[in-house]
Design a protein around this nucleic acid. Structure first.
Lengths: 217, 217
DNA sequence: AACATGTCAACTGTCGACAGTTGGCAGTTT
DNA sequence: AAACTGCCAACTGTCGACAGTTGACATGTT
């Protein structure tokens, strides 16, 4: 069927996917420890592949390792959120600049599609699905055509998702985000790299501030 | 001696350090494969810890994994260099901006110390040791006070070192780099974030271009 | 009662061995 | 001679078991 892709992903690879899902959804709560023998039995694999999966997720920042103690889901402090968003801002502002100077017409179509779907969803009154936000940023990264930056953004966004689930974030800032996205598409269409960076910075600082206020209840 | 168990650092941690050194110095040449049993015997450890070390280095970008084939030292193409420097530019420009707005007097002393030592070394006529270049960028990161950005810059710089050794880079651009560093310290001392970003961008594009030209012999 | 000390269960770090897959090589066919 | 086929050695992926360390609990001391 699919010769280029590996027949069956290695057990370690499967464990990475399952564990990542459980960590990101909060099924494994922040601050809790990951017991190797227990999780290995629950996944039906041995400790070897599970250890590799744990180390992999640790390298992505989704787990923190303590020697002889095990792996923990990191607990987020407001300071962590700020520092992480400094990294995210650096990466995504650069991506926005590159997208403004490299985007093709096809890229613009994709970006506008995502924005249109977000608007449609907004009118239904339902909460803004994080899926659409990710889709927008992904489309922007595709337009930027910088694989290393794209990879790092993906990892950082994952950590943001982890903080969201840990902070029990309620997302009522849809309107502002949608406007930011639309404005970003416009300046990218104009090829205005400097302004793209500015708009992205404002967008992310708004998202960051929203996460910090919602966490203090 | 070989005590029954490691004293302070795990065998996997030690293996990471040894392998990283061998990869960065080119002792393990680019494109070559890392044989698990062979290297494990040479290091006097079992395959388990070595596998974890290999996966760790792969997560840092110093090795690439191929399922059922093993780990390889990645071979760098000019396109890789360009894309990697786009990431480095995004990170270090942001760090320069933050350093300009957050630096203390102590930070300035450290930065000027490194520049002075570089000048002293330059007058000796000896080649510019990469150690001093790293020290400068490290001092700048300390001044930026953004731990996540600092961590990512460290990883990217490592990959740049790997490319250097793979490209047999000769470093005759000392004069320009020293001037860039001095100028960066000045604008950071002035607290001019925008200009710090601009100077850093110019500096890195110069370094990148130098690596690309030297690689084509 | 508070503190220091000894003991112990649980867990991680490590090892050696087995099984499945891959790429190459010899032999055969056209 | 070139190409195809089947076999084989080497290597990775995986497993179960042992040894050392850690934190907590129980016990004894001031």
């Amino acid at each position: 069927m699919t010769p280029p892709t590996p027949l069956h992903l290695s057990l370690a690879g499967q464990a990475v996917d399952v564990l990542r899902e459980q960590v990101l959804t909060g099924e494994i709560p922040a601050g809790s420890r990951v017991n190797e023998v227990e999780v290995a039995q629950k996944l039906g694999i041995s400790r070897g592949p599970l250890r590799e999966a744990i180390r992999h997720l640790a390298s992505e920042g989704l787990l923190t390792l303590v020697p002889h103690r095990g792996a923990f889901v990191p607990a987020a402090t407001p300071e962590d959120v700020r520092a992480l968003f400094e990294l995210r801002t650096a990466l995504e502002c650069a991506a926005a600049e590159l997208a403004a100077s490299r985007r093709t017409d096809v890229d613009l179509v994709r970006l506008r599609d995502v924005c249109a779907e977000s608007r449609r969803n907004y009118r239904t009154g339902q909460p803004f699905p994080y899926r659409l936000d990710l889709a927008f940023h992904q489309a922007l990264l595709d337009a930027a055509r910088s694989p290393y930056i794209a990879e790092q953004v993906r990892l950082v966004q994952q950590r943001v998702v982890l903080l969201r689930s840990a902070l029990a974030d309620d997302p009522p800032h849809q309107q502002a985000s949608l406007d930011d996205h639309d404005e970003l598409v416009e300046v990218i269409a104009d090829g205005d790299a400097a302004k793209a960076s500015t708009v992205m910075r404002r967008h992310l600082s708004r998202v960051c501030a929203q996460m910090l206020t919602s966490s203090t209840h």
